[in-house]
Design a binder for these strands. Sequence first.
DNA 1: GATACGCATTGATCCATGATAAGAAATTAC
DNA 2: GTAATTTCTTATCATGGATCAATGCGTATC
Lengths: 192, 192
Amino acid sequence: MFSVFTDYLKEKIPITDEQLKKVEQLFRTKKVEKGKILLQLGEVCQYTYFVTNGCLRSYVIDDKGKEHILQFAIENWWISEQVSFSNHEPAMYFIDAVEDTEFVQTDEQGWNEFHKIVPAALEMNRKLQMNSLRSFQKRLVSHLSASGEERYLSFIKTYPPLALRLPQKMIASYLGVTPESLSRIRKELATQ
Amino acid sequence: MFSVFTDYLKEKIPITDEQLKKVEQLFRTKKVEKGKILLQLGEVCQYTYFVTNGCLRSYVIDDKGKEHILQFAIENWWISEQVSFSNHEPAMYFIDAVEDTEFVQTDEQGWNEFHKIVPAALEMNRKLQMNSLRSFQKRLVSHLSASGEERYLSFIKTYPPLALRLPQKMIASYLGVTPESLSRIRKELATQ
DNA sequence: GATACGCATTGATCCATGATAAGAAATTAC
DNA sequence: GTAATTTCTTATCATGGATCAATGCGTATC
């Protein structure tokens, strides 16, 4: 599955075979079972993950014990607790495996090496950060302005692959509605 | 009011008088009246703003014509449409003046010069970006897990200066409740 | 194949918040 | 200082979504 990663890099940044070879040294392949927790709340996040197969997610647990999902990451997506990783401070959320998952990971030193070997990676990183910021902004706005049904429609339109493979209760958690509500929303939409 | 900015810099990063003198050249002082729009939806955001007096905000207008506030910036706060600024793409939101406001601004070239003159500014920038990301994440989570009342309490606790000087309808817009609801929430809290 | 567990559905009920409208209070403009 | 706007409050009613509870369905376990 490592090729998923190298293919990704080749697509995203100009990179020579020689550079690629060096970069490969910096990333470690890992395989985890569904349910495996990669980052605990309060730990300092040491790694950035790139999923090559399967699905990871980040989530919080609120005072009332409820889970709220912040991000999903399927094949070709990055996931991390960026602020914890970058500031070396305790993580605000968990990261775990929604499915059996294969991914590559690197730590801060790896990232820095990566940037040294391929300067264009800095630019890629910048873009990834902006994407992440934008996506949180958009999600916030959707909560300020749209109903559960509208958010669901927008979700399946934006992430068809996720809509297909994720259990509904996880989609509900991501959307900020109860599983019961999502079930009703879907029923409504189906009968129209 | 320029001294507000230079004082900020001196506090945040190690900087010599000489460096400061050069950096000052890169930032332009501006003064705008309440209501003045600094960034229009769809424009590419050219500047990053640092407020020295007054208050700016960023906001979106949804399909139904309602405003939703993303950020406020009072004295010593930065504000910009970071994604538009960084990616040179059309802005997703507006920026305008909530009060008569004085600020300093710089464009991308200015930022780059700034980083060249004071390398520590890069680190400051990184931190600012992480703060911004974290704040959007926290706000999203608050919408996933908390009631209007809880969000209000958290707001006045986190930003007392904002709670004091902003019109309630703006706080309501930021919190994602109607002004009527916020009025009720406040009444409830007062009688307890 | 029987059992059990997690997930999705459905129904009944409740509640926080939205929508609307109208009046009070405060601010701004002339 | 008065009129005109804007903001805030209050009241009533409507509703989306939460909660609670029960049932069905599918799939993993032994």
